[in-house]
Design a protein around this nucleic acid. Structure first.
Lengths: 349, 349
DNA sequence: GTGAAAGCGCTAACAC
DNA sequence: GTGTTAGCGCTTTCAC
């Protein structure tokens, strides 16, 4: 109802600022991008105007003029998975702080879509791409995908959370070894020696690493490795872990603790244990990876490895922006996991 | 290694197509946008070229030329909530099918951020905005927000999942009444009469509607409404529901079933019940809204109201694109909920 | 029906 | 240091 300044729809441009400041558009652009020295007197005037009108440069025009769009594309397997959701939120926050917008795409496990979206992000001229899940988690990188990634990297840097052999992708990874160390130390200290490893597939890079480390630790401690305690060719969902746990118990394999490959698997294991009348942790301890809210709301609440999502997101975005700006960054950066102890793990006996 | 056509980085433009087809760029644009008649002979030639080069028009340029960016902005409260995640995935899919890209932003419950992001989506020239969660769920719409929305709607249509009094926002909503009907019918048929309603706040539109409907149904059935069975000023998380359920039981209020405002609340209730030695559903039945995977993985699996996310997403996107294209659509469209019966509900006695 | 040309808002040579 | 100018790729009058 009040006679506020009517927004005519036309938004303010660099030309408007230039005219009012009595300089050329180029000069305004210069202070905007900090790309050259501008006499501080003019600079201040321009900055004042920018503030005054809350001027924000048009990203479309900027993108067209073939510089940057200030957008980072994020390719995720499935955001409904709280693990990825947490990753995305962390990235979105960090991106925002760095002056970028995060653009999310989900390929939902469809390999065709995964490639299509990767290309489409490039077409959209995102300044960099971050991928979590999918082919970048494979132990053995798929050739066709590697080729595509290399092609795209000619114009757009790609950062991943796994690895992709044959590419120069930068990666930010959880230290899976250390994560396993934390879990094993915890369990060993509690007196466990018969420790099962349930869920996941070993053709997934991080799962493979965990498995290797698991064996190594046992060896170091002089505990025999019993292959029957370890599953493979599973998955990362509730049902599969439920089934696998049942199979282990059906075979009469004795154990006092089980490490679930993620929180979902842990839920399946817990369900199985409940049904069979085992008490957690009195009879069997259950621990897991990811520390999503699933771990918190579980009954009992789960001891789980936290991936420190905030730090993860920050490192991912920092790596991406470094690549964009031509700053130097390590090709592989690590995120340090933490152990969160809850009620699902306890001493033996 | 092979001498494939090298991608010089420069991607193909309508000029390239035009040259090869022996027409002007304008004509190519015409067939691209279907904005004018083009002699079918040329048209076919052009389309063939487009296919041949897999040509996709540059959205940045298109956006700059002040038409559409083919982008729909999605403003969500927090994608880590599986309810919103499911909504987003559904929207993303539907958007893709309609030739749009979905751009997700989360304001994480921060009211400042909510407004900032809304503005920023407009600046990014998204063709439409869809919001779920936050102020569009308020029973009493906030004036400041209404004003902002009206301002933005001058250039960008907004579709919401709740309501916003004083705006012409289109809305796609769950039929909360019907959802409550389904739950109550189910419970009443099982013989329940002492039914608690736990979680949520009645200043949230949909929660208010459910509460009203709950009372009405009891009245219709000639069952006395006991206000002590109903909580308010709660939340939508596990802890709050856990606390509220404990309070109810501490007061010695008798009930045979409880309706949780969402799956998270249900988990809190289940936890409380477990700790106090109640069996579900033998002693008390628990049902909930949302039917996220939480309901599936719960112990026991929860009877829950499914919101039919795919349909929801489709209607949301369809409404948005209709608004963009100037097609006519209802100002309020409803999504029909379904009841999914699992093990957490059973007969009395 | 179709081409020429202007313009969307910005950046990046290139002069001065 | 700073202005001029030429694009970036597309749509859209406006003539013809």
């Amino acid at each position: 109802m009040q006679s506020q300044k009517i927004n005519t729809g036309k938004s303010i441009t660099i030309y408007d600022i230039a005219r009012e400041a009595g300089v050329s558009p180029a000069t305004v652009s210069r202070v905007l991008t900090n790309s050259a020295n501008v006499r501080s007197e003019k600079k201040e005037k321009i900055q004042a105007l920018i503030e005054k009108y809350e001027f924000k440069p048009n990203m479309l025009a900027r993108g067209l003029a073939d510089t940057k769009t200030q957008t980072i594309g994020i390719l995720s397997a499935d955001i409904r998975n709280p693990y990825y959701a947490s990753m995305f939120i962390a990235c979105e926050q960090a991106a925002r702080e760095a002056g970028y917008t995060a653009l999310l795409c989900n390929f939902l496990g469809e390999r065709e879509t995964e490639m299509r979206l990767l290309k489409s992000l490039q077409k959209q001229k995102v300044d960099a791409i971050i991928q979590f899940g999918g082919r970048v988690d494979d132990l053995a990188s798929e050739e066709e995908y590697v080729e595509l990634v290399n092609q795209i990297m000619a114009t757009t840097p790609i950062v991943i959370t796994g690895k992709l052999d044959g590419t120069r992708c930068h990666a930010v990874r959880i230290d899976s070894m250390q994560a396993m160390d934390l879990l094993m130390e915890h369990l060993l200290e509690l007196g466990h020696e018969r420790i099962a490893l349930v869920g996941g597939r070993r053709d997934v890079f991080q799962t493979f690493e965990k498995y290797q480390r698991y064996k190594q630790i046992l060896k170091e401690r002089g505990i025999d490795f019993d292959p029957r305690l370890v599953t493979d060719n599973g998955s990362y969902d509730v049902e599969t872990a439920y089934r696998q746990m049942n199979e282990l118990l059906d075979k009469g394999i004795h154990m006092t603790a089980v490490i679930a490959i993620n929180d979902f698997s842990a839920m399946g294991i817990v369900k199985c244990l409940n049904e069979r009348g085992y008490r957690i942790p009195e009879d069997i301890s259950v621990v897991s990876y990811d520390n999503t809210y699933i771990a918190e709301i579980g009954v009992p609440p789960l001891t789980s490895i936290d991936y420190n999502y905030e730090e993860y997101g920050r490192k991912l975005i920092d790596t991406a922006t470094a690549l964009i700006d031509g700053r130097k960054v390590g090709a592989v950066r690590m995120v340090t996991p933490t152990l969160v102890v809850r009620e699902s793990s306890g001493g033996t006996r």
